[in-house]
Amino acid sequence: MHISEGVLSPAILLTGALLSSGGVAIGLKKMDFSKIPEVAVLSSAFFVASLIHVPIGPVNAHLVLNGLVGLLLGWMAFPSILVALFLQALLFQYGGLTTLGVNTFIMAAPAVIIYYLFSIPIKRGNSTITLISGFLGGALGIGFSSVLMSLSLLGTGEEFISLIKVVIVAHIPVMIVEGLITAFCVAFLKKLKPELVKA
């Protein structure tokens, strides 16, 4: 989920860059040197997982999983998502260098919100609560991201409104699928590797 180069206004690009720098600074502070390999290899895993194409009705969508990233990494989602987007900008030119700040914030801020909202219910709740929190975490992660994406387009120009409507509607099925996958995934992780689910 990202906005291409050359679309957004300078004010929005700058705001995004500043907000993301703040988030990345907090994330780096929380990440000791001993945690770097763990956060890095988990980021590689999320990167690979985002290449998986999931059938949604007649089409395929690729996973974003920012809710799951938040649940596993907390504030360290900011540096994790930043390096992934930076690599994408270098290798595939999806997103891009000037939009790096905005796109990082669009994906990482919801991840941190999801972490604060759902990591405790997932850790402490019974299996039903875990599944429900996981579903909401995955679905709202995408939901918040599409809201932030819409806001950054709207802040650039009100002319984007018809595009925004389409973007939001297109994300509803993605939200449901991300919710289901995140729910099953956290339930699975809680059973096999409880220490991974942060709280």
């Binding site: 390999p37 763990e38 890095a40 290899v41 988990l42 590689s44 895993a45 690979v48 997982a49 998986i52 999931v54 059938p55 996973l63 999983l65 799951l68 596993l72 699928v177 289901l180 996958i181 995140t182 729910a183 099953f184 995934c185 699975f188 992780l189 096999l192 590797k193 991974l196």
Partner: peptide
């Protein structure tokens, strides 16, 4: 079934990555 299978695969990938990072 598909979503469950993919979710478990991603979960397994995460666990393998975590163990590898240690």
């Amino acid at each position: 079934h598909t979503y469950k299978t993919l979710a478990y695969s991603i979960g397994m990938l995460i666990i393998k990555s975590f163990d590898r990072s240690q």
